[in-house]
Design a protein around this nucleic acid. Structure first.
Lengths: 243, 243
DNA sequence: TAGATTGTTAATCGATTAACAATC
DNA sequence: TAGATTGTTAATCGATTAACAATC
């Protein structure tokens, strides 16, 4: 209940979001045979500031050695454990179009920690298709399937239209973690986590910065921020000139 | 240079990241024929707090009407303009495997603001494939292509191995915005923006919370945070019992 | 005018970072 | 012991939120 030195209580969200990045960087180091890494090296591989990395890791415990650094393998294990990757989470994918198909075959799932246990689609032309070791099941088999076998994570890879209804059904059968690829904001009850992967959103964020850069350049490098509202208009003008 | 009332200088990153979400919610409202929306309604559709929404929009300017709300169409235009979507950004996709193929055909690009102008792959078996209006070009044609036609955004959809080299080449030919789907942390020079879309990362973040929820439940609902390090171990134990 | 809702203020909260004492 | 590097402190910065005056 009190705040002991390195008590591990409530790891900040920002830290949790970076742990997978560290894990990835550590994996690459391990492959190259690196046994030990300093916070400086690991931070640079992960693209963050070393103070931030140390602060993040300190939330998990004291797994480094002063004067030496971190043991790569041991840190991989500790982060994996913290993220819950030392067990296998059963995953279902709903919507086996182009994207769902790509996801079903994606190596990311092969990553320790997850197992795709079923694929669902409502299109009779897709149902029955074999993808790797799995056969695409009709969406209406969802309830029967989950009655037999627990599912931790549901991936929604349908078009926008049916996404909310699919999500509702996943929640209904007990799924409390949803990864949403459909271009809609899913509404879920409290206790259910949704994360969204969205191509358009990412592109739009890049476009914003791209526009800023175009304006900054046109204005002579510095002061991109001091636009009093002119950035968009200026970018338009630039675009008009350059195309 | 000074801070006038609603001078638009440096929109916070957190706000920029949410503008696409608002845009999407507004699009859905527009489709349903809604002409006007209050911050309360729009916030709920976007899954955020209404104070946050108003604060975010206030960074763009004063586009609402007190006592009334926001004109949906006008707000769509203002956000689009701010994000730089009233012009078309040329996009290339490198790596036309399962995922790249899905991306090339993805409706997200059809969204106003982006145009896929070329697809590249280094596999001779893939080069020459026709995808929609485009033919997959050999990766080695990248330099010649960009010499002819400007490219704003590069999408890296290769496997992890070649991703950094591909990114380097994109940067070399002048691309300053990269959307990375490969499971690596790309290193880029200052002035280049990288955004990462990563299935594993998202799954791992969900797994962390899923684990917390499992533990919370086993401990009798409350106090999920007060684990002094026991969450992971407890989840393991739970998993062992329930499987 | 009365009711509704924005835009802004100010307080709070959480995240980042530099700096350095602890310690291998 | 001397050098290196962690883990933690404390200062700073940015983001969130409630509350409300401005105003349609």
């Amino acid at each position: 209940m009190s705040d002991e030195p390195s008590a591990r209580r409530g790891i900040p969200d920002a830290t949790v979001a970076r742990l997978p990045v560290y894990l990835r960087a550590l994996g690459a180091l391990a492959e190259r045979g690196t046994a030990t890494v300093s916070s400086e090296e690991l931070a640079s591989a992960a693209g963050v500031n070393s103070a931030k990395l140390r602060k993040d890791l300190s939330h998990l415990g004291s797994y480094g050695t002063r004067g030496v650094g971190y043991d790569v393998e041991y840190l991989v294990y500790q982060i994996s454990r913290e993220l819950g990757l030392t067990q296998d989470w059963p995953v279902v994918i709903v919507g086996i179009g182009n994207l769902g198909h790509a996801l079903a075959g994606y190596a990311g799932f092969a990553t320790r920690g997850f197992e795709v246990v079923a694929l669902f689609d409502s299109d009779p032309a897709v149902v029955g298709q074999q993808i790797g070791p799995l056969t695409v099941l009709p969406l209406d088999a969802l309830e029967a399937f989950t009655a037999e076998q627990p599912v931790a994570i549901g991936v929604v890879a349908t078009p926008a239209g049916p996404a909310q209804a699919v999500c509702d059904r996943l929640v209904e059968v007990g799924v409390r973690s949803v990864l949403n690829f459909a271009p809609v904001v899913l509404q879920v009850p409290p206790g259910v986590d949704v994360r969204k992967v969205d191509l358009s959103t990412e592109l739009q964020i890049l476009a914003f910065h791209e526009q800023r850069k175009a304006v900054a350049e046109a204005m002579g490098l510095d002061d991109a921020d001091d636009d009093g509202g002119a950035a968009a208009a200026a970018a338009q003008a630039i675009s008009a000139v350059t195309s």
